[in-house]
Nucleic acid binder design. Structure first.
Lengths: 215, 215
DNA sequence: CGGTAAGCTGACGGCATGACAGGACAAGTG
DNA sequence: CACTTGTCCTGTCATGCCGTCAGCTTACCG
């Protein structure tokens, strides 16, 4: 329980304050979508929100702090990605469908939140634990479910026991995240969106089960 | 041939000038390793290089411009990654070795250049074509070779023809790049470095050939 | 209506940016 | 050795953003 929203100087934010705060977050979000992270300035965010820089600093310690806030909200939503994998079958036609749904859901989520996810990715890669934790929170939901699926298949003798479930699951999730983040990039390789999904589906299915998906 | 190195105002740089320029690039590199990209300031780079900000601006239009320079140099080196795949066998024991070498070489390269690669990745994800091109230059060398290998296997009937070679190769390369960039991150999932490589090797081999690698 | 706390902003010192002109320096020339 | 030439570096300056504070306005409550 975080309890109440507070300003930097300790006051509790009322209805109006929370609205302003939210507006700043929204404007920052838009800003991140339209200009490089490095060039996002407090003054621009404030201007766009129709307020002053001083107001921004009343609610957030700095740009990074506000970004963390946005990311946290997104992570909460992203935890729902678990359902794409948890409790689903990896056998036969159903297995193919599971892989397909996972890829589809993942790409959609990533595209929807690409701007903020870019920044989270950078922060995590730079070693910032706070960003790191958020990235984990999102990927973990899928990663753990995938690892469980692999372990389950292992216990039933359908997959080599010497395989490290967590490592394979993590690599697959990293693949999904990376491809999702550079979706546009694939076009330069002459790969269209529509061709990307089947390939990812194939790789995910192969990675989890060791076998090609059923038609 | 770019010909001569030039300053921002058009003069050709002599020996001393090039040394200063290089020193600035080196210091910027160190800076990127030790502090977040967003916080790297021209004045800090200049101070570290024992010179003044004005000197920096004589050789580079801004921080981004200098970063591009460093990235370009790295890309040249990275083009050598082709040799990890080109002309190598994907059959039997040799195939396993190919996958292993590819993973090893890739991870090593990435770790060596992680700071600059982070920035390139961000720039590319943000849609900056210049960064994009550099990222391509590095990944292309591996990607094309991988795609060729898959096509070759397809033509010999060893892999399904309906698979899109470029898409699969691209996804595998993206996976390698992403895992390499978040190597530390896997530790939080309880995955050690030593366990990561076999898993990646497995996935790469599976992706290319559709079969598990031979022991 | 007066008190209190929330909400906002103008203004300010500090620092980074980016441009310029001019000084320092090395190398070649007579 | 003085002089010239072209490279190289820096002092300085206008501009603009950062981050903070005091103080003003607004909303709520008894």
């Amino acid at each position: 329980m975080t309890g109440q929203v507070r300003t930097v100087d300790g006051r509790v934010a009322g209805r109006r304050g929370q609205a302003t705060r939210q507006k700043l977050l929204d404007c920052l979000s838009e800003m991140l979508s339209s200009s490089p992270y490095r060039d996002v300035k407090v003054i621009d965010v404030a201007r766009r929100a129709g307020t002053s820089p001083a107001t921004f600093y009343q609610y957030f310690p700095d740009v990074e702090g506000a970004v963390l806030e946005i990311a946290e909200a997104m992570a909460k939503e992203g935890a729902g990605l678990t359902e794409l994998v948890a409790g689903r079958s990896w056998v036969g036609k159903a297995g193919r469908q599971t892989a397909e749904d996972l890829v589809e859901g993942f790409l959609t989520f990533w595209r929807k939140n690409d701007a903020i996810l870019r920044v989270v990715d950078l922060g995590a890669a730079e070693g910032d634990k706070r960003f790191y934790k958020i990235r984990m929170k999102i990927l973990n939901s899928v990663n753990n479910s995938l690892a469980d699926a692999i372990k389950d298949l292992q216990s039933r003798g359908k997959v080599d026991k010497e395989i490290n479930a967590a490592a394979v699951a993590g690599s697959l999730v990293a693949m999904l995240a990376s491809v999702a983040g550079h979706q546009k990039g694939f076009q330069s390789w002459g790969v269209k969106q529509s061709e990307l999904k089947p390939s990812l589906t194939l790789l995910v299915h192969l990675g989890v089960t060791g076998k090609k998906p059923a038609k």
